[in-house]
């Protein structure tokens, strides 16, 4: 069962990564960015946009399938950790730089996602301090 989760999480990350990389290609190929029909035609006239749609559809079904079986916490984290794979790929594909702010920012974001994933995982457990408070 562990292997099922691992493959599922990797698949989810893969689909999300495919979507983001395709979005970038679709946007770059459609430049200059203008709020008109010509821009839309450039976006939908190139194949990349369909890669992005395929990535989204794939991620959606993988997510639904994972949620049936996998614990919500790790699933939540896996569904957002594509920031790491996308960052690494963008160095290779687009020649982008891993600047210090990006690396530090990514570390904080990943730590935050892990916290949120842990929080989701504990949601089912009884919580002493539960319930809305006026101060939030």
């Amino acid at each position: 069962m562990r292997r099922f989760y691992l493959v599922g999480f990797l698949l989810l990350m893969g689909f999300d990564t495919l979507a983001q990389v395709s979005f970038k290609y679709a946007g770059t190929r459609a430049l200059p960015m203008t709020a008109d029909m010509a821009w839309l035609l450039r976006v939908f006239g190139a194949p990349w946009i369909y890669g992005a749609i395929a990535g989204y559809v794939g991620a959606f079904f993988t997510w639904m399938c994972l949620l049936k079986h996998a614990p919500i916490g790790p699933a939540f984290a896996a569904s957002h950790l594509e920031v790491v794979s996308v960052m690494l790929l963008s160095v290779w594909l687009f020649g982008e730089q891993l600047t210090l702010p990006r690396v530090l920012g990514a570390l904080a974001i990943v730590a935050g996602i892990v916290c949120l994933g842990l929080a989701e995982g504990r949601e089912q457990a009884p919580d002493a301090g539960a319930g809305p408070t006026p101060a939030g």
């Binding site: 946007g27 976006v43 963008s90």
Partner: peptide
């Protein structure tokens, strides 16, 4: 798409 076309993907 518009947003990503204007800044680095990472």
């Amino acid at each position: 798409i518009a947003f990503l076309s204007l800044i680095p993907l990472s």
